[in-house]
């Protein structure tokens, strides 16, 4: 219980910081007056300048965090995350391709299609010539697919007109600048829907975690449950990509970090903790990337890269002691 309190107060603090910090510092009192009176600088900040992007950051972080944990539980490996395994780069590639070829579909649909396609390709290609399949091959093939999607995205970007190319390049790093209420509503709307689906699937997930044989014995249809969970996980990641670009490492970090802070082990609790931690990490990264250099907004992906890369290195050092990889 104490862990949850810590996690939620951290998130609340990060959200408040995100609303306060920017070109002009807003005190909590100014924000409070703005919220109730609806006029003044506080109201403008909440309604136009920082409100929508803060909410978008929190929503994107939450869906990414939950997505990473779905795969980490399913594959029983802390390295299994949609950013490492190429699903997010696949979603990113689909969005860039849609823009480049003028496909008039909404971004979330494009991202979802790209993510699902990448997941399908990774799954099919990771069946080894002798028919065996392992998390080891899945992760390596996923990294390969993400390399390819990144290269193909760069290829498409070089074919765009200069201004469009600069925007696309920034988006591909992961960016939260100039988000509107539409983005916030989109990620929260799709996100809540997917969380409901996940809530239905969580029982099967808990049983799958006990091992396939036991789960089958308890009446879980293994393949169906697993496919359903993979789809939910990919769609969660795609919902994040659609509003913030393929922000790296949030999905990888949020799960283990949230599990530790909240002190939980059950799948349902882990997913909730991961969603809150994902929101926390993304909002904080956004605050830092906005305030690091005065008058300039770094893409949020640069910040999550600086935070996530050392975490990944540390994780690899630790995993190495456990062997197998």
């Amino acid at each position: 219980m104490k862990g949850w309190l810590v996690l939620i107060s951290l998130l609340a603090g990060a959200l408040l910081l995100s609303l306060m910090i920017g070109q002009v510092l807003m005190t909590p009192a100014m924000l409070w007056t703005g919220l109730w009176s609806g006029t003044g600088p506080g109201a403008l900040t909440l309604r136009v300048l920082r409100g929508p992007s803060t909410l978008t950051a929190a929503g994107a972080g939450a869906v990414l965090g939950a997505s990473g944990t779905v795969f980490q539980i399913l594959l029983r490996n802390p390295l299994a995350a949609p950013d490492v395994m190429g699903f997010m780069s696949g979603a990113g590639l689909a969005v860039v391709a849609g823009v480049a070829f003028g496909v008039l579909l909404p971004l979330p649909l494009l991202a979802a299609a790209g993510g699902l396609l990448a997941a399908l390709v990774v799954t099919l290609l990771s069946v080894r010539p002798n028919g065996a399949q392992s998390t080891f091959t899945l992760i390596l093939v996923g990294i390969g697919v993400s390399f390819f999607a990144a290269a193909a995205s760069s290829f498409l970007v070089t074919r765009m007109p200069p201004q469009e190319a600069a925007d696309a390049q920034r988006w591909l790093v992961g960016s939260l600048s100039a988000r509107s209420w539409q983005h916030a509503a989109q990620v929260w709307g799709i996100g809540s829907l997917l969380f409901l689906v996940l809530a239905v699937q969580v029982r099967a997930m808990a049983l799958l975690e006990l091992g396939d044989d036991l789960a089958a014995g308890l009446g879980v249809r293994i393949n169906r449950a697993r496919t359903g969970l993979i789809c939910t996980g990919v769609l969660l990641a795609a919902a994040g990509v659609a509003v913030a670009g393929p922000v790296p490492f949030v999905a990888l970090m949020a799960g283990p970090l949230g599990m530790r802070i909240a002190g939980v082990t059950q799948p349902g609790a882990r997913l909730t903790a991961a969603a809150i931690t994902g929101a926390l990490v993304t909002v904080l990264a956004d605050v830092v990337s906005r305030s690091l250099v005065p008058g300039l907004q770094l893409p949020v992906g640069v910040m999550t890269g600086l935070m996530g890369a050392p975490y990944l290195l540390w994780l690899l050092m630790k995993e190495a002691e456990a062997g197998e990889l």
Binding site: L140, M303, L312
Partner: peptide, 29 residues
Amino acid sequence: AGPVRLTLAGVALNALLLSLISAIILSRS
């Protein structure tokens, strides 16, 4: 080191260095 560890270590090192480069570059237009 196994291939997964080495490759991911490379991914992390690349991400770290490229993020640093971007942070430096973008802050000095």
